[in-house]
């Protein structure tokens, strides 16, 4: 039976892991390679590395990081952050990433999803969607550059944001998700910017609405604070995979305890080897 995936996510800045990961048996908590090996051994099903390096000159560091990781772990991993072109995607895949995640670039250049999935295969193109709930009676952000088919209307419930949740786009998140899938996205990484960091659970309503109609796998992201939240994203939100960062990095829960909890709740998971 196909199992639900548990995916730790690491933020990388200039080649180093940020957000202070703390484990007793890790010598260098800032070394992405050492942490990748740790999570692989712990039973993570996949890993995601997000490059948050601000300056593009220092972004080449990430290619070396990816090369080193690919030689040490033998589970799939995705690299995101700063991926803007076919060349960027090619560089990451050839360095050893299995998939790339594209976010803002896909919104600025819709053709990127279509071109890259045709060229590299849709299995390695993850489209990341950062969204927020639209408050009731919210005036619509008018944005004439948006395709009317994708623009938010009075019926829209979630809007896409870029730049870490700072910039609104006027794009309806559910419509965009379907559009991205139809253009060749192999998977969607959906992050609630309202819930991210709040530890109060994922945006179950969004997950549920999207899962009912979408044809590609969904990774739920943003809001995990307890193991029960992971369960809810799958049983109530029907997500195919759950991403979490801080609950694992700070040692609040282990991958093993998460898998045991999920399994006890009837969710199929890959047993830890």
């Amino acid at each position: 039976m196909l199992t639900k995936r548990l995916i730790p996510c690491l933020d990388i800045d200039k080649g180093r892991v940020v957000k202070g990961v703390s484990f007793e048996n890790i010598r260098d908590a800032g070394d992405p390679v050492e942490l990748a090996v740790f999570y692989d051994k712990s039973g993570a099903d996949e890993l995601i590395f997000l490059d948050i390096t601000a300056s593009s000159e220092e972004r080449n560091t990430m290619i070396d990081v990816v090369k080193n990781i690919s030689e040490k772990i033998f589970i799939p991993f995705t690299v995101g952050g700063g991926i803007r072109s076919i060349t960027d995607i090619q560089n990451m895949l050839e360095a050893g990433a299995d998939k790339v995640s594209i976010n803002t670039a896909a919104i600025k250049n819709e053709k990127l999803i279509n071109q890259s999935s045709k060229f590299f295969g849709n299995q390695c193109i993850v489209v990341a969607i950062d969204f927020k709930k639209i408050p009731p009676n919210n005036p619509l952000h008018k944005n004439d550059s948006i395709d009317p088919e994708l623009a938010i209307t009075t019926n829209s419930k979630w809007e896409i944001y870029t730049h870490g949740g700072r910039n609104s786009t006027g794009i309806d998140a559910i419509k965009w998700a379907h559009y991205a899938a139809s253009m060749g996205a192999g998977e969607l990484l959906v992050t609630s910017m309202d819930y991210d960091g709040q530890k109060s659970g994922y945006d179950i309503e969004f997950l549920n609405v999207l899962s009912k109609t979408i044809q590609v796998p969904i990774i739920a992201s943003g809001g995990a604070g307890t193991l029960e939240h992971l369960v809810e994203a799958i049983t109530l939100g029907h997500a195919d995979a759950v991403l979490a960062a801080s609950i694992f990095h700070f040692g609040i829960y282990s991958i093993e305890s998460a898998k045991i909890h999920m399994s006890n709740k009837g969710i199929p998971v890959r047993p830890i080897q």
Binding site: T3, K4, R5, N122, Q123, I214, Q215, P217, D240
Partner: peptide, 27 residues
């Protein structure tokens, strides 16, 4: 859903040397 993406089991239908030391229904 397509793609079929993630960890799934392989049920062995034969004793092939490629699977020496690997159980049937392994992920």
């Amino acid at each position: 859903k397509r793609p079929h993406m993630g960890w799934n089991q392989v049920t062995l239908t034969d004793n092939h040397p490629l699977f020496n030391g690997i159980n049937s229904d392994e992920f």
